[in-house]
Design a protein around this nucleic acid. Structure first.
Lengths: 347, 347
DNA sequence: CTGAAAGCGCTTACAG
DNA sequence: CTGAAAGCGCTTACAG
């Protein structure tokens, strides 16, 4: 069996409670006793039992990470590098504060819901980070009802108030990006976004539409597409757009992974980007400078989104008086070769 | 406070031990009592405390996932989609057996080592999956010394015996891939691989070299490159190769992410793939069909690697008599447009 | 078939 | 400054 606090106590000729205090580095214990006890701990290779400690403490020093449902391979979220990157960010802060990370294993919505219930009710984690935001999400509603410390990466639905979230200003940067396309001379601009129930899609669409409206450019309904699948979805959207009487001259895409599928579909159709079609996108994923042509995209600082989310959830956990807040991570448009001025001049 | 087993017992007018047996669905309890107790559990919204249970059980139903060190951004492992995919596979099996997943948060080697120690000594997890294999890895040595249930994704170093691992037959498929290049007429073939201490790099290099040797094709030392960085590493390697008196006509790359950097570097140099240079690679990551040109690469079934690793570690945990074994996940060469016959014919 | 009791390995008021 | 005792919320032999 593993060595316990009692073994240390016996060997060091002190009480178990003293050993416990040495572990906690309590100021009440003499340096002399501490040294003595620590020596024995080293000798016996002592390591505190996680569960015993958590049980006595009613705290776990663990954070749960909730991934979005990914129905199947080919789905936009399935292999989206976004998640690996955001987890890296979470991980970095969590590590610095000695928090551990738990991830959900559910694929479908109901599974994820029960994973979250296990985490919350089973007191497995002290707080949760939700990596997506969508309307009528039972998981989010559950966390709100339970009043459990959690942070959202993304913008909350309108009907959910008083929660802490970390997000980019997707609306503002979408406006900026749309204005950029307009400044290049584009008037016929289409939109291809991920699932419409996702808040991030909504926000980006809103910025897109409002900007065009303000510029008095009308957007036909046929210009607005939503899809969840990289290959088939991208291809179908592109085909639809190209077969219109007035096809767009630029496509505003909400995710680099989706843009990858779209570039591919355009390429298969023999449409040259940026000469015959412009494409802009979001997230600046690692491959987006390697596509052909390299993508004009929005740097959203994924890692930082994760880092701030972790910082916020730890704050919620450790400071019960902390109130909900919203943290905005800056964005930047990265101009590459998938866009150029309509009149022929480069960008 | 949360509702406990005692609350249920009081309400259902039974002993706490009976409640516990109902939770475990013990056959010793009458259906009648079970029903009665379950009703109360539902009413009060009972959920077992994870830590109390683990403490009493000495088992956690959790698996620890150890990620490789990723020194910094731009590093080959940092955003490599391989890991997200392998974790999906692990996740799928774990979920089916109701295991939870813990991931390490350390970035540097020593941090990872201490994460693993925490997991093992603190009895946080019942078993571990190591997502990389390299020579003289203190983490692996520690797990072996502690005789802790773990499974390696990859091939173990030669000096480590009797461990369970899940891997592709990298040697064989590298031979196959090299033969394929030879069959296209290539004789001057260079190798660009990830870090040389990684077993996967070694295995792929060995298959590569042996095949050329058997075909009596000599490989100059200058043809063998190793790098850890996508952009700079890829660029430098390509520049070095192109400045040789006899530059290669094909490059054998060990990872799609690295290949991405290499395609980019070639493109910048104005070298056309596959007309002036062929490129083959490994892993069939999601973007590899979208590169220009699409990559000829090896499907290694990453998801399945993860799935089998999870299955194996659960077996090790639950069946103490199970002996170490090696599971080989099949591979397949996917021929795309980055390769073609040297004499001009396509593939 | 069910209950009382001990134990898993910690922490933390309460004494002294 | 240190110790004895109770408790965190479960499980599981042992009785009956």
């Amino acid at each position: 069996m593993a060595v316990t606090i009692k073994d240390i106590a016996r060997e060091a000729k002190v009480a178990p409670s003293t050993v416990s205090r040495v572990i906690a580095d309590s100021p009440k214990i003499t340096e002399r006793t501490k040294k003595k006890v620590r020596k024995v701990m080293d000798q016996l290779g002592y390591y505190p039992n996680f569960h015993a400690r958590n049980l006595a403490n009613r705290a776990t020093k663990s954070i749960g990470i909730v991934m979005p449902a990914s129905v199947r391979k080919g789905n936009l979220t399935f292999q989206n590098p976004f998640f690996q990157d955001v987890i890296k960010g979470i991980s970095a802060f969590a590590h610095s504060e000695e928090y551990s990370l738990y991830i959900t294993t559910g694929e479908a919505e109901e599974e994820i819901y029960s994973d979250v219930m296990k985490m919350v009710k089973g007191r497995r984690v002290d707080g949760i980070i939700l990596l997506y935001s969508s309307d009528n999400d039972p998981v989010m509603e559950y966390l709100v009802d339970e009043n459990f410390p959690f942070v959202l990466v993304g913008k909350p639905p309108e009907d959910i108030k008083n929660i802490t979230y970390v997000d980019n200003d997707n609306y503002a940067v979408s406006r900026e990006l749309t204005s950029f396309l307009i400044s290049l001379g584009h008037k016929r601009i289409a939109f291809i976004g991920g699932h419409e129930k996702l808040l991030v899609t909504k926000n980006r669409l809103a910025g897109f539409l409002d900007t065009l409206l303000l510029s008095k450019i009308t957007v036909p309904k046929t210009y607005i597409k939503h899809t969840d699948f990289i290959m088939d979805g991208g291809k179908k959207s592109v085909n639809d757009l190209l077969s219109l009487k007035e096809p767009p001259t630029a496509i505003f895409v909400t995710d680099d992974v989706l843009a990858l599928g779209i570039l591919n579909a355009l390429n298969e159709k023999g449409i040259s980007v940026p000469n015959e079609m412009n494409v802009v996108s979001f997230n600046n994923l690692f491959f987006s400078e390697f596509t052909s042509p390299p993508l004009t995209t929005v740097e959203v600082n994924i890692y930082q989104l994760g880092y701030e989310a972790a910082r916020s959830v730890v704050e919620l956990i450790e400071d019960e008086n902390s109130s909900p807040k919203c943290i905005t991570v800056p964005t930047e448009i990265i101009i590459r070769k998938s866009t150029k001025s309509l009149d022929g001049k480069n960008n």
